[in-house]
Design a protein around this nucleic acid. Structure first.
Lengths: 266, 266
DNA sequence: TAGTGGTCTAGACCACGTG
DNA sequence: ACGTGGTCTAGACCACTAT
């Protein structure tokens, strides 16, 4: 297959031993990378480039096998890993689809606050602020930007069942989220990440969170309807897109009376 | 293979189409279970029964394939999933081993508190209390016991770099942890779960945590060297062993100044 | 050199969803 | 009836580890 390098030796019985046509400087074989990993990379490229968009179906395994000139089993293993990474979703009998932040499943992946009673508590978002400014040194570092690069700051309040429960401060790189306005944010229903992937082609793949217990300062306390000094869950998140590039910094304050942050250790 | 039921039809070219010898009441074929899942179950049984103990090597893939009368590929898929579940650890060129709570890797799987500076902060455990009592209604429910069944209560303090950082209250079913004494606890170095698996044959497979921010009550505050009312992370954990049987309830209070609870969303 | 897990292939059949 | 992903097999070779 084209564009693959460091392919060791030859295989068993394939009809075409895959001669030449490599890109450039094949470089002996210092690092060995399995074929299916390379296929995984190619599929990821197609996802990133938007060849297959969120929610759409991707070509069948046999079709991809033909395109990449490998066996179906190799494509299967690549897709298996991408599905495990939540980039693709397999549906038996139908096909393989690009994952979306709109699915039920994906909701609680990034907002893990549940009610004590386990019941459904529909939450709505109230936009407090959306403005563009220059990145502080700290935010710039976390977003891998230069200090004073443009960023977007969003502040919002999440109400669970009418109660103010989560206060979020969200920083985004201005260059990526160019057309993001308060109006668009105010009118949009549903998960923020669903809008990001639909309107800006930026998919949040994974995130890391640092969680602490803090005392509410007066400003935060006021917005969350709790007394100053009230214990809040502080959640510092950095979200990453393809290539592990950070594209969001988020600081959240959660009221955890009646709600808890759910985590599974496995 | 023996002890497999609900095996649909026959396969392609295997020499022995696997005739009869089913256990009892094969029941048409209402629920389909893939062969590799059944193999997974058999391997899990051997793990649970102690045929292969933590840290030990298990038979090779070809050997297991022979034992279960399936192909190596099927055993491989079963082991793949068990390795993904952290029950087994594969080591290329050496073999497959039963996972242990002693490995570096496993440490931060169940205690996800990290220092702000990312440095190594060795923690030591100080036993406060270990006594046997009858389960409260709440604890009994969570451990799937009858109220007033015997339980063991352990209270301990974790010091990070000399600072009291975590206070734990741990409830265990008395029937399972029969010979557990304060002396044994006091003398044991290393993770509690490592002792549990070595001394009581009880392996913690997974756990769920409910995390909240709470104000320290005077007793807890005193032990953790913080003022009463200080914001603490409250971590309610239930741990499960084979067959998803709950075998530990743990309530922890974490001081999160200088430390944070690390979580990865992926 | 021998044994283990890891990769890759090819082909057959099964379960599921849709015409 | 057909196409999709899902399972199972069998065999070859590669990479790593130990002896």
């Amino acid at each position: 297959m084209r564009a693959m390098s460091a392919n060791p030796a030859s295989n068993a019985n394939p009809p075409a031993p895959e001669s030449g046509a490599g890109a450039s400087a094949p470089a002996a074989s210092p690092t060995f990378s399995p074929l299916y990993q390379q296929i995984k990379g190619l599929i990821t490229q197609s996802l990133e480039s938007g060849e297959w968009k969120p929610g759409e179906i991707i070509p069948s395994e046999v079709e991809l096998a033909g395109r990449y000139k490998v066996s179906q089993g190799t494509v299967r293993k690549a897709i298996d890993e991408l599905a495990a990474d939540n980039l693709l979703v397999r549906r038996q009998g139908k096909g393989t689809f690009v994952a979306t932040h709109n699915e039920e499943r994906a909701q609680f992946r990034f907002l893990r606050l549940l009610a004590d009673d386990g019941a459904e508590h529909p939450h709505i978002s109230k936009l407090l602020e959306c403005r563009r400014l220059r990145a502080s040194a700290d935010i710039a570092r976390q977003l891998d930007l230069k200090p004073s690069d443009p960023v977007v700051l969003i502040r919002r309040l999440l109400q669970f069942d009418g109660e103010a429960t989560v206060l979020d401060e969200i920083w985004l790189p201005g260059a990526v989220f160019r057309g993001l306005t308060a109006e668009r944010l105010a009118e949009y229903k549903g998960p923020l990440y669903a809008m990001f992937e639909a309107d800006f082609g930026t998919r949040m793949i994974r995130a890391t969170e640092k969680i602490r217990a803090v005392a509410a300062d007066p400003a935060v306390a006021d917005l969350l309807n709790v007394p100053a000094g009230f214990p809040l869950l502080s959640v510092d998140r950095v979200s990453y897109t393809y290539g592990d590039r950070p594209v969001e910094v988020r600081r959240g304050w959660y009221v955890t009376t009646g709600y808890y942050y759910q985590n599974d250790l496995s």
